[in-house]
């Protein structure tokens, strides 16, 4: 599917996750965050960068792993991205939705 955002056309799946991380830009992240009423702070950016680097290293993401990342603890992760931190942060970071129950 195509989605128009920040004057650009990006490719997303039916749930709105970018299908190509190369199309991702920080401006797109800010726009996607707005859909969840989130204004990205420096702490948000640190988490997003961490998620992208883990994704590039093919590390499957889970709440437990993020809690042990030394980047953010679980409580803050939920505070930064309420309403489902792992799936929302992944969407904003332009990476696929993690298939994890933990």
């Amino acid at each position: 599917m195509e989605k128009q955002i920040c004057g650009k056309v990006i490719h997303v799946n039916e749930e709105g996750y970018l299908t190509d991380l190369n199309e991702w830009t920080p401006e797109i992240a800010e726009e996607l965050a707005k859909e969840y009423d989130i204004t990205l702070s420096p702490r948000h950016w640190e988490v997003l960068k961490y998620l992208q680097s883990e994704h590039k290293n093919n590390v499957p993401l889970s709440i437990r792993k993020i809690g042990k990342s030394n980047v953010v603890d679980i409580k803050e992760f939920y505070a930064l991205f309420p309403q489902g931190p792992l799936k929302i942060s992944s969407k904003i970071a332009g990476i696929p939705k993690p298939a994890s129950c933990l």
Binding site: S62, I63, R64, K65, G67, D73, I74, K75, Y78, L102
Partner: peptide
Amino acid sequence: IDMPDVHEFLDILTASG
């Protein structure tokens, strides 16, 4: 499969609200 033990799981649950 990266499943925490009971104590750590409780910590995760409380941190998750």
